[in-house]
Amino acid sequence: MEIHPTAVVHPKAELADDVVIGPYCVVGEHVSIGRGTKLVSHVSVDGWTEIGERCHLYPFASVGGPPQHLHYKGEPTKVVIGNDNILREYVTVNRATVQGGGVTRLGHHNFLMAYVHVAHDCHLGNHLIMANCANLAGHITIGDHAIIGGLTGIHQFVRVGAYAMVGGCCGLTQDVAPFTRAAGGYRARMYGINYIGLKRQGFTNDQLAVLKRAYDLLFRSGHRLAESVKLARKEFANHKHVMEMTDFVDGTKRGLCASVGRDEETDE
């Protein structure tokens, strides 16, 4: 274990043997940090916070601070961060509220760039990329392999599905379906399947073709959404990715981002 003499580490904090705590870091009483994790400098880790193995926290990151929520009364809610995460400069991850389930969670292999904010009760999956100044309000869920563009703000309780791509400078107020891409100013809209991102993740041309057909049926057929889901489940019953998409759509509470028409799309 390597702790810089200027760092302040509570004696009850649980640190693995090879953790590195750099200059001017502060680690609180109820914190646990796993093997190989490094706090570069000026990092604050407070509250009931668990950080996994081989994470890398850069200067002025703040993890485990109290939620920005008027009803929070100091309850011992948590932040749980998995393995192999990178949190760049000034990233903030707030602990949860009792009302929201008690845990703000970040999975494994995620890259949060500078000034990203993860608010209380968010649940983030694995292999995410969040670009500079992407901001999440409370109770947001983001699926595996999603990408959130810089300067994007996401409204509380919104869900972003797995493998989705959200462009920069967006205002996202409704859900984004898995495998799709969304962009566009104050109220983002969906622009079809995330072809480039899915190809990079190893999706085949046949899989992409099926997702394209399912997308058109769900969002461009003119049917009511509930009817589109029923038709898609019947036609694509043997395609697990389409079933994931229909389950996501069926579970929406805030509604889905509107899809642009074919004359505006930029699908390949």
Score class of each variant (00 low, 15 high):
116 V>D: 02
133 C>E: 10
122 C>A: 09
16 A>T: 07
99 Q>D: 14
87 L>M: 15
267 D>R: 13
81 I>K: 01
206 D>K: 14
186 Y>V: 14
113 M>V: 11
126 N>V: 09
94 N>P: 05
244 E>Q: 06
225 L>P: 00
164 A>D: 02
88 R>H: 07
62 S>Y: 00
187 R>M: 11
128 L>V: 06
142 I>A: 02
266 T>Y: 11
62 S>A: 14
48 W>Y: 15
203 F>A: 06
88 R>L: 10
253 K>M: 07
181 R>M: 15
197 G>N: 06
236 F>P: 01
113 M>P: 04
162 A>I: 01
207 Q>F: 09
197 G>D: 06
252 T>Q: 07
32 S>T: 14
131 A>M: 14
16 A>N: 05
60 F>G: 01
151 L>Y: 14
149 G>K: 08
24 Y>Q: 05
101 G>Y: 04
46 D>S: 14
35 R>F: 05
101 G>S: 08
86 I>H: 12
147 I>A: 08
228 S>D: 05
64 G>A: 10
111 F>S: 10
125 G>V: 08
20 V>L: 11
157 F>I: 02
145 H>G: 01
161 G>Q: 00
217 L>C: 11
213 R>P: 06
141 T>W: 10
222 G>S: 09
248 F>H: 01
88 R>T: 04
205 N>Y: 11
216 D>S: 13
172 L>M: 13
7 A>P: 10
161 G>A: 05
209 A>C: 11
102 G>S: 12
225 L>A: 03
265 E>W: 11
121 D>K: 02
216 D>K: 15
83 N>H: 10
164 A>I: 06
47 G>A: 10
240 K>R: 14
191 Y>R: 11
164 A>E: 03
240 K>P: 03
158 V>Q: 03
170 C>H: 09
71 H>I: 07
29 E>D: 14
216 D>H: 15
31 V>H: 05
53 E>G: 06
151 L>K: 09
226 A>Q: 13
160 V>D: 05
159 R>C: 03
111 F>Y: 14
109 H>Q: 12
241 H>P: 00
227 E>F: 04
218 L>F: 01
216 D>M: 12
232 A>Q: 00
53 E>W: 00
89 E>Q: 04
81 I>L: 15
202 G>C: 09
264 E>Q: 15
79 V>A: 09
218 L>Q: 02
240 K>L: 01
197 G>W: 00
186 Y>P: 00
121 D>L: 04
78 K>P: 02
97 T>P: 04
247 D>T: 02
113 M>G: 02
6 T>D: 07
33 I>T: 05
90 Y>E: 12
198 L>H: 04
130 M>G: 09
